[in-house]
Amino acid sequence: MDLHEISEKLQAGAAKAVAALVQQALDEGYPAQKILEEGLLDGMNVIGEKFKNNEIYVPEVLIAARAMNKGAEVLKPHLAAEGVKATGKVCIGTVQGDLHDIGKNLVKMMMEGKGLEVVDLGVDVAPSTYVQCAIEQNCSMICCSALLTTTMGVMADVVKAVEEAGIHDKVKIMIGGAPVTQHYCDQIGADFYAADATTAAEIAVDYCAKVANG
């Protein structure tokens, strides 16, 4: 079989077909990592690019991500058996006082679609929770989302908490959300600003690759 078929079915959101094709590929002896990269991640990369370019919309991303998860469920034990590790680990959450999770969830999906391990802290996340998670789970990056102008100020508190914990040299902070700008990122001393979910995932992957390469 051609692994690209998995990618295409994933892009179409055909969850059952993706799971079946992943199983078929395993049965035919393809290494799990190859199936992951050339099938699932390739499909999500296409989805991410199309979403970034407004060629597809949120429901299509969600449906594709569901298909990816179905395929990943089949693949996961085989990846572990092969000793394949995630390309990096980050934590993500919507800042304290803010209950909006749409943007955060999209970023998480795009990151997972690029092979990152993402610890989802949910919504209304206190600065200390980000820091604690980053330390305990050995995350390379803290990702903060906010929808409201009234809550984006918490992002500055996260930067402060990271500084106070003395981990800023190891753990970088990325921020995003409707009212957030590059100017604001610079102003509060955060490390990265992402204007959209796909860009956020690209930034995180790049940074995690740098960490992995020392």
Binding site: G13, V58, P59, L62, I63, R66, D101, I102, N105
Partner: peptide, 16 residues
């Protein structure tokens, strides 16, 4: 209208 949180997943899946 744009659904919130988990409702969004459910809505997207139902459309499909």
């Amino acid at each position: 209208y744009i659904p919130d949180g988990n409702e969004m997943y459910e809505f997207a899946y139902r459309i499909a």
